[in-house]
Design a binder for these strands. Structure first.
Lengths: 224, 224
DNA sequence: GGCGTAAGTGTATAATGGACACATGAAGGA
DNA sequence: TCCTTCATGTGTCCATTATACACTTACGCC
């Protein structure tokens, strides 16, 4: 494998990373899109991303692009899939390694201030027409996220530090597009031992205050 | 995202595909390795693979490399992960998109004749020292294969056209490194409806002949 | 025809998943 | 202060699924 003697003699494709940044807001699962101001697809919405530099790993590139374009840093990033259709970029051969990341509504609102480029969250089932094959990439990522809900605690990235069980349940329901039984949901979630009651309760609401919970540790793990 | 005006002005990494070709033979899960006869890692064993051409997709590249180096064509190929550590190739920046494929023992024996390059199957837990980060890639692939056994019929690629339920069970046991209960295994497998009795039986053996089964269709599907 | 060998089969128990309804605690207004 | 409003919080029964476990059957061979 590899070549004989000199790898530089081969034509080389360009390599980019593109990031699906998920959040849940206003009862919808959303992803971040940025407005392109260059050809091709000028003025189209696209996933945040860009070229991989020669001295950085793919994970580093994804982290860098995400923080450059959004100001959000050190999120949990997971490699999704690599798309390499020769015609996916009309200019030249571009292979893109895609990642997904999750951010809580509250955290995003804070960190997004001061970003120059136009960037906006869109509900995943009301996406505008996207540049390149980004529509396909988005669908793939949403599907992956749905699957992962079933056997990991990946959802922790979408929630703030403390939250009620009802909040948590809503996030599941929004992503899975189903409604869940409250008692069964709580039983199952608590039986994993991954979240613990903080002891504090919601205050200032006109009904019984809910217990606030938090994740025991902030690492994504497989739960079964 | 992307660049301004001219993508060709950026340094570009080389991109390869590497393929983990699994088989089960002599009671062990094995992968195909080829002997390198170029630097770096001359005389080391490595995964079959090579550079992605400018006019082919990643899937096509994986298929091509696999058939060039082994003579086996049109196997089920699944993209695994993309490895892009800047130092993984000592020559220059090389990003590799990895795939896994499965071939049955019997099919391989037929098609492998006439291959020039030295190629050999090695048990996955007795691998020699491999070139580049191929040891890590192999581990990742084995793990993925194990996981997929649980919720897909991916194993069909490892078996010939017809097989006994005992054969099938052995393949599961070898890959998962556990022993399974015969009755429970048969119940579960048959309840998926994905395999059917062919009506024929093994002949010429000194004990009760086993029914031969085959997969109803040859597509990999999710079973739950 | 008796032996060796792997095939083939059922049941009882435990664990899991899903359906389902009512009392509780706080705020706010009468 | 008492009554209303509203989301919280909790337990049981049933169905399904997973697991443990042992003997009879069919064939070749000697």
């Amino acid at each position: 494998m590899k070549d004989k003697y000199d790898v530089t003699k081969y034509d080389r494709p360009s390599v980019t990373v593109d990031v699906l940044l998920f959040t849940v807001e206003a009862g919808e699962l959303k992803i971040l899109l940025v407005k392109r101001n260059e050809t091709p697809f000028e003025d189209s919405w696209a996933l945040p991303g860009g070229f991989v530099r020669m001295d950085e790993s793919l994970d580093e590139a994804a982290n860098r692009e995400l923080s450059e374009e959004t100001g959000v840093k050190n999120l949990y990033l997971e490699q999704l899939y690599t798309f390499g259709n020769p015609k996916r970029d009309p200019r030249t051969r571009v292979i893109t390694v895609t990642y997904m990341a999750l951010v809580s509504n509250t955290e995003w609102k804070f960190k997004s201030t001061g970003d120059a480029k136009e960037a906006k969250f869109f509900a995943v089932d009301k996406l505008p027409k996207l540049a390149f094959d980004h529509t396909e990439i988005s669908k793939y990522g949403v599907q992956r996220l749905r699957n992962k809900l079933g056997y990991t605690n990946i959802v922790l990235g979408l929630l703030p530090g403390s939250f009620t069980l009802t909040d948590l349940q809503k996030v599941y329901e929004i992503i899975l597009k189903t409604s869940l039984d409250k008692r069964n949901f709580r039983k199952k979630i608590l039986s994993t031992g991954l979240i613990v009651a903080s002891g504090k309760k919601l205050e200032g609401i006109a009904h019984r205050p809910a217990m606030l919970y938090c994740f025991k540790n902030k690492k994504v793990v497989i739960t079964d």
